[in-house]
Design a binder for these strands. Sequence first.
RNA 1: GUCCCAGUAGCUCAGCAGGAUAGAGCAACAGCCUUCUAAGCUGUGGGUCGGGAGUUCGAAUCUCUCCUGGGACGCCA
Length: 561
Amino acid sequence: MEMQYKQEFANALIQVLGEALTEENITVMIEKPKFNSLGDLAFPCFELAKHYRKSPNSIAEEIANKIDLKIAYKVEPVGGYINVFLKKELVSMFTISKILKEGEQYGSSPNTNKVMTIDLSSPNIAKPFSMGHLRSTVIGNSLALIAEKQGYQVVRINHLGDWGTQFGKLIVAYDMWGNEEKVKKSPIKELLALYVKFHVEADSDPTLNDLGRAAFKKLEEGDEGTIELWKWFREESLNEFMKIYDRLGIPFDSYHGEAFYNDKMESVVEELKEKGLLVESDAAQVVEVENFPPCLIKKSDGTTLYATRDLAAAIYRQEKYHFDKSLYVVGNEQTLHFKQLFTVLQKMGYQWQEGMAHVPFGMILKDGKKMSTRKGKVVLLEEVIKEAIQLALTNIEEKNPNLDNKEEIANQVGVGAIIFHDLKSYRLNDIEFSLEDMLRFEGETGPYVQYTHARAASLLKKGNYSFKEDNQPNLLDEEAWPIIKLLFSFPEVIGKALDDYDPSQIAKTLLEISKAFNKYYAAVKILDEDQLYNRLSLVSAVKIVLKEGLNLLGIQAPEQM
RNA sequence: GUCCCAGUAGCUCAGCAGGAUAGAGCAACAGCCUUCUAAGCUGUGGGUCGGGAGUUCGAAUCUCUCCUGGGACGCCA
């Protein structure tokens, strides 16, 4: 909707300006004034000053006088800008009616046949689900939801880290120090302990690393005993992960991990050979990549690597899903790997690789340093979730003890706090881990937005509101205007969030809407006889957008809390 | 050593296809529940936008350089 108003303003400018600037230029130059007193849209005349060789001030004045804009009640030149003041009643009515009519469809684009695969979460088997994997999981899931809203057919792929030398190491560790009963009792904890011990011991005895590599070779060659062990580790781990995905409410369409591609790599290696891309280097097989270090395809002992599996996976996914876009929500530190991967695919002649993108994100730091699984320096997500839910429950007992389904709401609020905390800041920022911040329910947090939504729901219930399509709401409250502006820009925010692969833009808008609404709530008596229908129409529109926005982040919007 | 990312209030961050007076939240302090959920609202204090140079009518935003932190750099993923 916002675009429409800009467009109308741009058209009006063109009428006056003629060919001094192109339409496209004008549209991007239109900005939002920094202060409410300066109106709703603005056009800077400094560029034109060069063109006309006049002062920006006089140009602005000249244009403002000539401009004819139906949607504005005032067009005012100020300090070289042309400021447009939209007709509040008219725009409010349009905006609210549109949202109420469209409901949760507000901001949606029609379905397309375009397919987007998203590689997300992808935890490593036999390791605990860390805070780092949380980022990939919630960012990826939100992008999936946003893409669906924009009409994509989305395939969520959990590319489990269930293969690789790490398993050789783990198997060696288990053979040397493992205890079956202990592992059965608490698999993740015990396996992690073994993994950490392995690295501690390997520091003083490097031959352990050779043993690990040898064990992995056995695994890749199909040694039965080794495979049994691997299967067991994998299953126990997946069970643990499923608990977390259930809590977060995140579904997957595929759990094909790295191991799934074991029998699909040889043909890729053959293909690379046929296309003359594979070269030997220090007894390893590599593909040379311009401007980057070469991409390793096979180690000198003949076993495969991460890149080999990712190549096979990319080709498999294209064959199976025919994706138009394929995202990899994977940490910042793997940027080089993806550049290599995409380049190799390009050299193989696969045009579809143009639709692939690495969506990197910053690390979770502890004391300014990367958390390392190998040293056992991890924070367990499960513990954090439990604490958040517990805290939410305590809050409910204190603030709303008569609430019906306390457990369920506490779940939604606790989990919402964690997800929102992760999504509200730009994904490339590193995050210093802070339990205190994650468990904060006041200020710019998920629970704050949820609370605002619950307030709106409560008002609608008390006011017994229902929308009648033939009764156009008319809003006269000056205090409502900031809310209206945010509401009509929401569809553009969704579009930009997808273009930038950046859910934080939605989170930020939700915060702004919440702040504006709570301000309104404090200033205006909503359940007032005379204005009841008009005001509740606004409340209903706010509720719709908040709920839809939270849902796009993968967060529930409880009716009460 | 080479390459990438970041540096804005005490803390966490927003603003960055250049634009009008650099904004929030937290923390601190002072107010607001006989009115619709106080997980809320209002107010106060707090800034050489890492340093320097350049481009421009105009730079937190673009370029260069330096400093600081982090990460990546063939047989891990």
